[in-house]
Design a binder for these strands. Structure first.
Lengths: 115, 115
DNA sequence: TTGACGCGTAGGAAAACGCCTACCTATTAT
DNA sequence: ATAATAGGTAGGCGTTTTCCTACGCGTCAA
């Protein structure tokens, strides 16, 4: 029904599974929206390769582009990261409980929420 | 120095970038530790293929195995997921602020925390 | 209008992925 | 001892990733 399916999650996690792309996200987060050249300065990589990384991020919905003259300004879009955090929620008690030293208990008492 | 480097993050995100592996994690979370055969019943896939998925999850630290007779009991290990949540934290304000409708503001006021 | 600049796309090569069919080891049952 | 069960490994095959160089298109400057 909606666009938040398995393929979308695949694309987001796959996009995050690369240090260059995570670094792009960090730069957009710390320095705000910027053009491709400014981003490219931080990487030991040809610009077309970075363009492909940007396309992966775009198709995952993690960045958006806005044309400004002959530049393309890329901007962080954090919505898919919110989805990741939502995905993490059911696992949260696993590391919180385990840190309290009662992890083995819940291993034998699985939860009952099934999508 | 420590084992939480870029390669480790790559491995965790890459492990999560596959619907079969995410489903394995969900099964281990909802039903507790279990053997390979029990997991395999949920997938339209030959068992050796699932074994490879389990290896990917193991190398990402997301599951552990415990030998019990001729069975291998797999258990969810949520620590890498806690790392993912930590990684998400600096982005959190982006979707929270944006939902409040003042996202454009912080786009021009980037933060200043740099690792 | 001509040239330089900013970026994307095309196509290719090497590696990694995800599936398969054998096949192997270890353990339990007969 | 033999057979059956549980599950990992080896190797093959088609697809995808990730880098590259070459090139095309739109925009701004001279």
């Amino acid at each position: 029904m909606n666009g938040t399916g398995t393929a979308a999650e695949d694309r987001v996690f796959a996009a995050l599974a690369n240090a260059t792309r995570r670094e792009v996200l960090r730069l957009l987060r710390e320095r705000g929206p910027q053009a491709v050249q400014a981003l490219a300065d931080h990487f030991d990589m040809r610009r077309p390769s970075l363009s492909e990384h940007l396309r992966v991020l775009r198709e995952a919905g993690l960045v958006s582009e806005e044309r400004s003259g002959r530049q393309r300004i890329y901007r962080l879009e954090a919505a898919p990261l919110a989805d990741v955090q939502d995905w993490l929620h059911p696992y949260e008690r696993f590391w919180r409980d385990r840190l309290k030293g009662l992890g083995d208990l819940l291993d034998r008492m699985p939860d009952d929420d099934q999508p």
